[in-house]
């Protein structure tokens, strides 16, 4: 799709949870400006894949993870994030006592490598919150503490916009949103889909893809990419489900 170097690539990535192999060899490359979608049945290992890529300590990883051409497989999650990797969590974690504003200020300073003056930071934060139709009062609330499902998802997108990653994985950011919230979140994702950046959307639904056009759609089943094709694949999955792919597992693209 591009002559450029991929912003993100996996080389035969395998992931274990204890003794159990959940991701069984995934290779893919995301080029600048590309949006990829990963779709797959419940429990197929999509969250495990993206969490392991980000560096969750519960997983054992084999294979290679590249960010902007650099092998980051062995890096700590915070190093990966500072280098420009981002993961919007399927289930964002509450950190009571830490306000959204103080958390984001620390995160932004870490990503940019320098402190941002309070006033400047506030202005930027408020502008982004407005863009996502969030009440400014959220800045003073404790991180994800008592947030509704939709509020948590919006906050993930707010972080995406504030942190300006090179490559972002969004794990079911569209789940549990009403139509209005879905539109807002989708517009946030589209704003993040710049020509330099790569995005990987994990989703169950075509409805997100009506708003955010993917270039590549992967089907993920039993720990592997069962099929890779263009956006039309998502529509086909919507119509036919996953069963018809069962036999082709292991075939890949």
């Amino acid at each position: 799709m591009s002559e450029k170097r991929p912003v993100f690539a996996l080389e035969n990535l395998r992931v274990w949870v204890g003794e159990k192999e959940v991701v069984k060899g995934v290779s893919l490359a995301v080029y600048p400006g590309e949006v990829h979608a990963i779709m797959g049945p419940n429990g197929s290992g999509k969250t495990t894949l993206v969490q392991a890529v980000m560096g969750h300590p519960a997983y054992t990883v084999e294979g290679k993870i590249f960010l902007n051409g650099e092998d980051v497989t062995a890096r700590e999650p915070d190093e990966k994030a500072r280098k420009g990797m981002f993961l919007a969590f399927q289930y964002p974690v509450a950190v009571p006592g830490v306000t959204v504003a103080s958390f984001l200020r620390a995160a932004v300073a870490a990503r940019r490598g320098h402190d941002v003056p309070v006033k400047e930071f506030r202005q930027e934060l408020l502008r982004r919150m407005e863009q996502l139709e969030m009440d400014p009062a959220f800045a003073g609330r404790y991180l994800n503490d008592g947030f509704s499902g939709g509020e948590k998802k919006r906050l993930e997108i707010l972080q995406l916009l504030m942190l300006q990653p090179v490559f972002a994985m969004l794990d079911e950011t569209d789940s549990g949103l009403d139509i209005d919230a879905l539109k807002v979140v989708a517009s946030g994702i589209n704003a993040a889909a710049t020509p330099e950046r790569g995005l990987l959307l994990v989703t169950h639904y075509q409805r997100l893809l009506n708003y955010v056009q993917p270039h590549v759609v992967h089907v993920f089943m039993n720990g592997k990419l069962a099929k890779t094709a263009g956006p039309e694949l998502a529509l086909e999955l919507e119509a036919r489900g996953y069963d018809w792919l069962e036999t082709s597992v292991g075939g890949g693209a």
Binding site: M54, H56, P57, E76, D78, A81, V95, P96, V98, A106
Partner: peptide
Amino acid sequence: QVFYLKSRGIPHHQALRLIVYGFLDQ
């Protein structure tokens, strides 16, 4: 919690400090 904060670029010790500070600050 530690993983979530680290996934945003916040270094390990700073993540711990934030969590403890938040815990007490409530």
